[in-house]
Write a protein that binds this DNA or RNA. Structure first.
Lengths: 392, 392
DNA sequence: CCACTTCCTTCGATCACCGAAGAAAGACTC
DNA sequence: GAGTCTTTCTTCGGTGATCGAAGGAAGTGG
């Protein structure tokens, strides 16, 4: 069913199957993993002894002895997660069950440079870590989604648009040093893709997740794993030239980029020109829901533009599913326009079994993905690794 | 160095390292694989006993005992390969060293339907198999590249344009039954991608190989492995809408597709309208080399159009390299136009370390890829598997 | 109450790999 | 040219993961 990065049958894999409900007993695991019963028993025992898995009573008989139910231990491991936006930070804890809790939003202006943002981030995550430890849980690490390009190693920020001072900032290692925990850093759309991928049923092997908010980004899952590309910049669709954008200059230095017409920032600017007060992508969403005609028109056109670009991507990449996330994905006209464009422009072979849906995880997708990524990597190292350890 | 599909250290991996010259002795293999010397010795012994590897004298000392050189056995395994075009078939044998020999071209009109083509194909491959067996080599299987979509299982042809009668034709199993050998079937661009990927140095993790000939296709390598997509149709870039094509109707039923302006077929048609007699993509190439202005202009514009589509692909997929293959890639203006378009339109981050080159394997890339794909899958099964076995 | 199913554990056996020890063969040094 | 160091490769026991067979525990259904 699920096919995580790990080898089949690894401890992390077992945990994942139990966490997402694919398996509730040892016998389930045997069926799911195809391993020998004795092997599964041994693995489960390890996990129980490590405090990550627990037995909880017995289940219904299927004609024989009742299975001894397994569940992930609540007092087990958690990861901290942070989803950064250009003007706010969302933090939370993610457990082995794959749900996020203790979620908070903080207003932080990333455009004011990295140091103040790092201060706030470290402080918030620090108190969050305290709370989790007080509740008896082990903090395994921190996952961070950043609203801009991250280098191939997941160590530094690369030339983010409209965020001066961040270029080459070593966010991963700076944060790891501050909190003494391993940090996993990636682009926000990539984190969102991980979150949506895990939540999607059936689990798609190849998936494209679009984040349409103030900016436009996407995360790519290829063969069940995140595709980051040669330089870590895969998934960029916002600087593709579209007819609609004509000669409009873009922050990237080029002209006619998708971002200049279809991003939340662009739509907001266009609405302000018409004398309508908007600030964030959520403001736009509200206007659309209230039937404001200008906003609806702009959002629908944005959907068409995004759809035109996605049509190329879908033909080329042939994913099982396209998931639309980010604040603007709440706008029905946008989703409808993307769907229409894809069905019109793509090859029938590419769309015949393609599902195109709005995101299922809502605003927490980024947190969930970031947290789950950390847990997948740092769960089975028994002690939380050496303080300054910040592996990619 | 090289990272094939297999687990590191598998017998196939050892063979690959010796075949491509990465390792010439057991000690080399130890360094390359990171395995214990004893393990490598055992593996090599197996392979020698299986007749796939041979010792050939001693090499130069590096300050101690001389290494005993290894090479792949000439009398070892081969795969047969066939590269189908709309009007011809190219066949050859591919050895473990990764080179093709006993190559032949046959005129066959695929547009006349599958049955006659299958007859010719089976007959040619049959005599090729005979010759190889007579030379003392074991034929492991057959790889076939088809100039149109192949289903996700690699079993059937799907709705190829301009080739009536082929839809859903079970080419893999029909050919396997005729020859009693396992058959590996895939799109021609995918096979070409496999061939170019293996030949490329350094081996790119993520790669896009474009085949620009009569039609336009591409093959995608993601994380060292062929990306076929959900339905096996990944890599399609020929039915992307481009401005240049305006409202031109395409064989796919849509309008404005890249194929209608940038394919060899489209260029040939445009030249014929100007009264210039051309038939194949090679004819076009000859015209360009002779400085025929119309042909050169059309080819350059085709390069720009292909480049415009590839720009989206490169931003999205962020490969290490883009390789241009197919007959038209021999035209310098086309390669130059693609390069120009990519550097102009892509993000700097995506192109800063991107290599964009014409294919290195020439017209044999498809054969090599098809053969190598078979050898990777069917090398270590000691006896050539059961006659009708046609695994995907 | 007895046969049969399901669930899970115990207990050798197997297989891949490792590392230590050493043998073979040469290079280097004084 | 004799001893020492390097490099290459093999032999041989040891370790760890997994498997399969056997069986015990706990049910269901006639």
């Amino acid at each position: 069913m699920t096919a995580p990065d790990e080898q089949p049958g690894s401890a992390a894999h077992v945990l994942e199957l139990v966490a997402n409900g694919s398996a509730t007993s040892r016998a389930d695991l045997v069926r799911e993993l195809g391993l020998a019963a004795s092997t599964v028993s041994a693995r489960v025992q390890e996990l129980v002894e490590a405090g990550l898995l627990a037995e909880s009573g017995e289940g219904a008989s299927r004609g024989g002895r009742r299975p001894r139910l397994l569940r992930v231990a609540e007092q087990g491991a958690v990861a901290l997660a942070a989803d950064l936006g250009s003007h706010h930070i969302r933090t939370g804890a993610v457990g082995l069950t794959g749900d996020a809790f203790d979620i908070d939003d903080h207003a932080v202006d990333l455009t004011a440079g990295p140091e103040p943002a790092l201060d706030t981030l470290a402080e918030r995550l620090g108190t969050l870590a305290e709370r989790q430890r007080a509740a008896g849980r082990t903090v395994r690490g921190i996952g961070v989604g950043f609203p801009g390009p991250v280098d191939a190693d997941g160590a530094r920020i690369i030339a983010p648009s409209r965020m001066p001072g961040w270029h080459l900032f070593p966010l991963r290692d700076r944060l790891a040093a501050r909190l003494g925990l391993p940090v996993l850093l990636d682009n926000d759309a990539n984190m969102m893709a991980l979150g949506e991928h895990r939540a999607a049923h059936p689990t798609p092997r190849h998936l494209v997740v679009v984040k349409a908010g103030r900016g436009i980004g996407s995360g790519v899952i290829s063969d069940g794993r995140l595709h980051r590309g040669a330089r870590g910049s895969a998934g960029d669709i916002s600087h593709v030239r579209v007819d609609e954008a004509a000669e409009l200059p873009c922050s990237c230095g080029n002209i006619g980029c998708l971002e200049t017409v279809a991003s939340g920032a662009a739509i907001a600017a266009a609405l302000r020109e018409k004398g309508i007060a908007v600030d964030s992508a959520t403001d736009i969403l509200r206007l659309v829901e209230n039937g404001e005609p200008h906003a609806t028109t702009l959002v629908r056109q944005a959907g068409r533009d995004i759809g035109a670009v996605l049509a190329v991507v879908v033909n080329f990449f042939n994913p099982e599913a396209v998931i639309l996330g980010g604040a603007l994905s709440g706008a029905q006209p946008l989703v409808a326009a993307v769907r229409g464009m894809l069905y019109e422009r793509c090859l029938p072979m590419a769309t015949s079994d393609l599902t195109i849906n709005a995101a299922g995880c809502g605003p927490d997708a980024g947190l969930l993905g970031a947290g789950q990524a950390v847990l997948r990597r740092h769960t089975m190292t028994d002690a939380p690794p050496a303080p300054a350890a910040a592996r990619s």
